[in-house]
Computed example of a mutant assay.
Amino acid sequence: MNTAKALLLSILVGIAAFPGSAQLVGNSLRSYDRSAPIDFAADRIEVLETEQQALFTGNVEVSQGTLDLSAASVRVLYDSSRDLSVSRLIAEGSVSVRTPSETARASRAIYDVPRSIVTLLGDVRLARGGDTLTGDRLVIDLNSGSSSIGGGRVTGRFTPASTDTD
């Protein structure tokens, strides 16, 4: 494993293990199909073949199954020795990650495709129905459907289910 990849992996592991984070579980994440094709759209695409990267800029939209991501730019890291398999997406600028029941917004997101982990960083806001959580970091494990938010003070609002019996 090269040094940059090892460093990013250790950062992601450190973020996932951040103490004091709130645990969340999203039903739509449990049914997420990580084997679905990844579709891209952008105003401009620049391929940096020697670096095995592609840079998508301007109104970038990425979708895989029921998971949608939008951002100002997305850098796609790939491995050309394995039929152009995508290893990582790094999204920046007004990032939004959506499932049918949740929306998360942040300044930056890293999607580790082989591990199926999405990490959102910077002014994170997670909304599910009328419930909201905010923090500095949100890690979503698409394998288990669980997520954690932390990286400083976590705030939120949960709306109790109606108990009206009329």
Rank of each mutant, 00 (worst) to 15 (best):
D112M: 03
A91W: 02
L120E: 09
P114F: 12
L29G: 00
L12H: 06
R105W: 07
R30S: 12
A91E: 06
D123T: 03
D33V: 06
Y78A: 04
S31I: 08
R128P: 00
S116T: 11
I11E: 15
E61V: 05
R115Y: 01
T119A: 11
R105M: 13
D33Y: 12
T163I: 06
E51G: 04
F56R: 00
S31N: 09
A71Y: 10
S28Q: 15
G156T: 07
L138H: 11
V118W: 00
Y111R: 00
S35G: 10
G122S: 07
V25S: 13
V13L: 13
A17I: 05
S10Y: 12
I38D: 03
F18E: 14
K5F: 08
D141K: 01
G150H: 06
G152Y: 10
G150N: 08
A36C: 06
P37D: 12
L29R: 11
T165Y: 08
A42Q: 06
N2M: 09
I15R: 02
T163E: 11
S107A: 12
V74N: 02
V95K: 02
V74A: 02
L133T: 02
D123P: 00
Y78G: 04
A36E: 07
G65V: 02
A109P: 00
F56C: 04
A16C: 04
G145P: 02
G150W: 10
V118R: 00
A72M: 12
A6Y: 11
E102N: 08
L77W: 12
A42T: 01
L7S: 09
M1C: 05
R128W: 08
A6C: 09
V154K: 01
G150V: 02
D164N: 12
L89E: 03
V76Q: 15
L9Y: 10
S10M: 06
A72R: 12
S63E: 09
S28I: 03
L84G: 00
S101N: 15
D123C: 03
E46L: 10
N59R: 13
E46F: 08
F18H: 12
A109E: 03
P114T: 04
S87E: 15
A54V: 02
S96E: 14
N59E: 14
A71G: 01
F158C: 04
S28N: 13
L89T: 03
S10F: 14
L84R: 13
A72V: 10
F158E: 04
S80G: 07
E51H: 07
P160E: 12
K5R: 10
E61P: 00
S31Y: 07
L121M: 14
L120F: 01
L69G: 01
S116Y: 07
V86R: 03
Q23G: 03
D164F: 14
Q52H: 10
S81P: 01
L89W: 06
T163Q: 15
N2T: 09
R157T: 06
A4S: 09
G156P: 01
Q23H: 13
A22Q: 13
R82F: 15
L89Y: 03
L67T: 10
V76P: 00
S147M: 14
T163A: 11
T159L: 13
E49A: 10
R88C: 10
